[in-house]
Simulated scan of single mutants.
Amino acid sequence: MHKSYGGQALIEGVMMRGKHHQAMAVRLDDGRIESLVTPFTPWGEAHPILRLPFIRGSVNMVESLVVGMKALSWSTNVNLSGGMDAEEEAVKPWQMALTVLMSLLLSIGIFFLLPVLLAHAAGPWISGVLAQNLLEGVLRVGIFLLYICLIAQMPDIHRVFQYHGAEHKSIHCYEKGAPLAPASARRFSRLHPRCGTSFLFIVMVVSIFVFSFTGVDNILLRLFSRVLLLPVIAGVSYEILKWTGRHMDRPIVRLIAWPGMQIQRMTTAEPDEDMLEVALVALEKVRLAEKDQEPVPFTQMTYLAAQH
C-alpha cells in the first residue's frame, strides 16, 4: 500500500509532506533546482489527544498553516538570494507567529464575519433568523468563490496555481504506481480529493448547516457564535474530507466530493514540464527521507531527483 503524501505550492516550487519529513524544491532563475528536507513531529503525535476525531481537524488546519507559512518563507528567501544563504534571511519565530495570527484573523473576518454583517444589513428585506442565516451561508460561499476568481487573475498567483497542479499530478502519479517522470505525471488529473481547496469548500457548506440552527438574533452574539463554532465546523469538515478521500471508488462519495473538486479547477492550472520536474524532485526527496520502499517504476527522472 502506498504511503500518503500531501503538499503545497510554493513560490516557484512545491513542498511535499510525509509522516515525519517534508521536502521543498524550487526552480531558480538559472534553471537549477534548490531543495531542502527537514524532519518534523506532528502536533498530534506529540500530544495524542490532538489526534482524536473532530479535534484533529482544527489542529491540522492550524498546523498546516504554520508549516505552509514557513515553507513559503523559505521559497521566497531562496528565490531572492539565488539559492545561497537562504537561512540567514529566514523570518524570526515572532514574525512567523504574527503572520499566522494575522492570516487567521483576516480569513475569519472576510469569510465568516463579513457575511454575517451583510446578511444583518439585509434585515429590512429578509426577516427571520433562519432566512438571514441561510443568506449568510450563500454570501459566504459567494465571497469565497469571488476571492479565488480575483486572485487567479494575478500572474504570480497563476504560476503558484500551476505548481499546485504539478503537486497534484505528481501525487496521483505516485499513487497509481506510474513512472515518476514529467511525461508520465502530465497525463494525470490536476484535481485531487484530499486538496485543501476541497476542505475549505466543505467548511463553507458545513457552516451553512451549523449556523442555520444557531437561532441567534442579536448581531454581537451572532458574530461571537461564528468564531466560537469554527473549531466544530473545521472538525466535522476534516472528517468528511478524510472519509471522501478514502472512498472515492464509490459513486455516491464521488458525487459528494464533486463540487469541491470542481473548485480546484480555479485554484490549479496545467503545469509545464519544468514545474512537474520540481514537484517530482520534492516528492522523491521526501520519499527518500521517509525510507519509502514502494516499488515505483524506476526512471531517469527518479535518478536525477535523487542527485539534486
Rank of each mutant, 00 (worst) to 15 (best):
Q262F: 04
N133L: 00
Q262S: 12
L134F: 10
I55W: 02
G31E: 10
Y147W: 05
G245K: 04
V14T: 11
E175Q: 13
A121S: 14
V210S: 04
G109E: 06
T268R: 07
F224E: 04
I143E: 05
E294I: 12
F201G: 08
P53R: 02
L221R: 06
V296K: 03
R194V: 01
S198I: 07
K19H: 12
K242A: 13
S189G: 03
I240V: 15
P124M: 04
I126L: 13
T76E: 14
L36P: 00
Q293T: 15
V203W: 08
G18P: 01
R190A: 02
E284T: 15
G177R: 06
L223N: 05
S189K: 04
I202Q: 09
R159E: 15
V286G: 09
G68I: 12
T214I: 12
T267G: 09
M61N: 14
S64M: 09
R250V: 12
E89Y: 11
A152Y: 05
C173A: 09
W243C: 03
K70G: 00
E167M: 00
H192Q: 06
I233Y: 06
V227N: 03
T244G: 00
G109W: 06
W94T: 10
H247T: 00
A86T: 04
F209M: 12
V26N: 00
E88G: 11
L223I: 04
P182D: 09
P251E: 02
A25Q: 10
C149I: 02
E270D: 14
G215F: 02
F54D: 06
A152F: 03
W243D: 01
D85V: 09
G109R: 06
S107T: 15
T214N: 00
A97Q: 08
G7V: 10
I202V: 15
A9T: 11
T41S: 13
F298R: 11
E45F: 07
S198P: 04
D30R: 01
N218E: 12
V296F: 08
P124C: 08
N133E: 15
Q162E: 13
E89F: 09
V100C: 09
V296M: 13
R226C: 09
G18Y: 05
A185L: 04
G137S: 14
D217A: 15
V59T: 05
W94A: 13
K92Q: 12
L255N: 08
A306W: 15
L241G: 02
G260F: 08
Q264Y: 11
W243G: 08
A166H: 04
G196C: 12
